[in-house]
């Protein structure tokens, strides 16, 4: 208990510092990695400060996992440098491993190993007491499953165990590769709750995800990676401000004539327009829906409009606009 209070105080101190004044946890400089001519990571630089929570977003094949594996020291960059608290893998691998916690998308433990045994194993790897293993059981709410074989756990319980192992030595930097992919919404919420608590305790977090909601919920900083490069980096508000308008209009037309389509495309104060000519459903990014609406109604035709809705811009819209792809597609 005393420890968690101290952690919280520390977290408050860190949070009070301006970002520029905080210590750099992770420094990635001009890193490249290619596989057979394909640039998975292409001259990428990124810096993460103490106490930050960063979501790394990108479609499949954007190079997220490659980047993460280089940070984890499982792959060596072709060029560039990666430092964790100023340490590099060539000289300080063991020190880095001690301060870094991580969970892969999937790790399968031997089937007939109990939850508490798996925790004790990794506790020994990090040289922490088995009392900490019991503490972790509490933290990941698996105390009543401590004697269960790992192959009897549900997907969510398995992910919580992986997370428990990732934080067993109280790492200063936590790396998670798609921590909730494949989980049902309830299991996802449970994991988010644990991660939020860890964040409040001051842990620096870098995670990759397919879920916008996850990025918004857990991370104040969002990095969008596409084709091996960083496309956007900032807080959610920054990104929404800088890269798009403020509102989204979604609509569906009953019939779509070519002349009408041309008219719609010529509309003013619309920063992004896209329509599926087959189904007649479309989307527009606008500064202010109220000012665009009368013009839109005139051009589309009131009777021709099947459905219509205006809503604030989300990260998902932004992502599609920037990469032309859905995040989970």
């Amino acid at each position: 208990m005393k420890l968690s209070v101290r952690c919280r105080n520390y977290a408050r101190q860190v949070a009070d510092l301006p970002r520029a004044g905080r210590q750099t946890v992770l420094a990635i400089r001009n890193v490249r990695k290619s596989f057979g001519g394909v640039h998975a990571v292409n001259d990428l630089s990124l810096e993460v400060k103490e106490g930050e929570a960063v979501a790394l977003l990108g479609p499949n094949g954007a190079g997220k996992t490659t980047l993460l594996e280089m940070i984890e020291g499982l792959q060596a960059p072709d060029a560039g440098s990666i430092e964790i608290y100023g340490l590099n893998y060539a000289q300080h691998e063991r020190e880095i491993r001690q301060i870094m916690g991580l969970a892969f998308q999937e790790t399968r433990f031997p089937e007939k190993i109990r939850v508490s045994e798996a925790l004790r194993l990794f506790a020994a790897f990090y040289g922490v007491s088995s009392a900490r293993a019991a503490e972790i059981l509490e933290l990941i709410s698996l105390t009543d499953k401590r004697n269960a074989y790992v192959n009897t756990l549900s997907g969510g319980q398995r992910q919580r165990l992986a997370l428990g192992i990732a934080i067993i030595q109280k790492p200063k930097l936590l790396l998670l590769d798609e921590p909730t992919t494949g989980l049902d919404p309830h299991a996802r919420r449970e994991l988010w709750k644990i991660l939020s608590d860890l964040r409040r305790a001051g842990m620096t977090l870098l995670l990759t995800t397919h879920y916008m909601e996850e990025a918004e919920e857990l991370c104040e900083r969002i990095v969008i990676q596409f084709r091996g490069k960083i496309l956007a980096d900032g807080t959610l508000e920054d990104l929404l401000q800088a890269h798009a308008s403020h509102e989204i209009i979604e609509f569906r037309l009953k019939k779509l004539q070519p002349r009408q389509l041309a008219q719609l495309r010529r509309m003013k104060k619309v920063s992004y327009f896209n329509i599926d000519e087959q189904t007649g459903s479309g989307v527009m990014h606008v500064d202010d829906a109220a000012t665009v609406l009368p013009d839109f109604m005139r051009r589309a035709g009131r009777h021709n409009l099947e459905s219509f809705a205006a809503r604030p811009l989300t990260l998902d819209d932004l992502f599609i606009k920037m990469t032309g792809r859905h995040l989970d597609g």
């Binding site: 499982l74 491993r97 001690q98 892969f104 790790t107 399968r108 433990f109 790897f125």
Partner: peptide, 13 residues
Amino acid sequence: MKKLMRRMIATPV
């Protein structure tokens, strides 16, 4: 195959 080896070598062991 189960990525357990990879998980183990990502610790200080």
